[in-house]
Write a protein that binds this DNA or RNA. Structure first.
Lengths: 156, 156
DNA sequence: TATTACGTACAGAATAAACTGTACGTAAAA
DNA sequence: TTTTACGTACAGTTTATTCTGTACGTAATA
């Protein structure tokens, strides 16, 4: 197996992993390519490597920047923008993925808890039995969120 | 707030959570609706509730069945297929999501480890320095997979 | 200051995903 | 056996996403 083939295989495999975290295929390939590269790259270089337009590079790099997976780099005498992948993989993905998920879970748990309270306030106005099963399902949902929250918090 | 509005709110919130696990919006709404319902439902009933065609229900229910989130139920004298949501939320999602992810991570870790070995075998044939940075990135990737694997295993 | 080169906004084209309605095989009911 | 009702395969349509090329504002160079 030649070096190029190795690189291609690594690109494919690692991109697959990264897609698991909600990146689009191109974002994933791009990030992987930057991560493997030992130097910061320009939009044009990436475009050639990915076989995509410069515009596509621009928008995809912006996504990666927003997720803090990529950093813009300055180098003396170079006019073009240069980008490199953040090297601390675990830390980066913790921040953009797991923390974000934990937050979202908490937020939704709170929304459901709020619903539960609101329902209990109005309880007297309605046949109690109609709500038996219903509120029990709501409680299951809240429990579920709580357990997810615990688990995501443990990931950090 | 009326009961119907409560139900709608819960549907919306819980569906959002479930979409986080890679279900499409319709799959998520459908699952939530089944979970809230106290009885098993037919394709027609779901179609009306979701405002979608029966065909759409059929394909989406099949997805949920494949993920073991939903069970087909038999009831005496009822000709139509009946479906209900599996009630143990955490268990269901562990099985279809976290376990599956852990497996995928392991698989990709192994692919990368295999690459690393293959590269080391051919090492002598190539300038050693060219590979310095490159293999170090590969090692980071493998470490990353290992840490993810540990974390996902801890979730169970 | 004038010119060149850069990144990106934007409109439209290509591609992919979701959804519908018809049509058909199959099993229950008559 | 004949008829009816069910779920789904499939083709085509609608909707959403991704991608490209042009055009423009802006900043570096001369």
């Amino acid at each position: 197996m030649k070096e190029v083939e190795h690189t291609q295989q690594i690109m494919i495999q690692f991109s697959k992993t990264i897609e698991m975290f909600g990146l689009t295929p191109l974002e994933a390939r791009l990030y992987t390519y930057l991560f493997l590269s030992d130097k910061a790259l320009t939009l044009d270089e990436m475009g050639i490597a990915m076989g995509k337009s410069k515009t596509a590079m621009s928008t995809n790099i912006r996504s990666l920047l927003d997720l803090n997976l990529v950093t813009r780099v300055w180098r003396k005498g170079v006019r073009k923008d240069l980008y490199e992948a953040n090297s601390q993989l675990l830390k980066s993905f913790m921040n953009f993925y797991f923390k974000k998920r934990a937050d979202q879970i908490i937020q939704q748990k709170e929304a459901l808890e709020h619903m539960k309270e609101s329902i209990e306030e109005n309880k007297t106005a309605i046949e109690a039995d109609d709500f038996g099963k219903f509120t029990s399902q709501l409680e299951s949902m809240i429990d579920f969120h709580q357990e997810l929250e615990n688990r995501y918090k443990n990931m950090g």
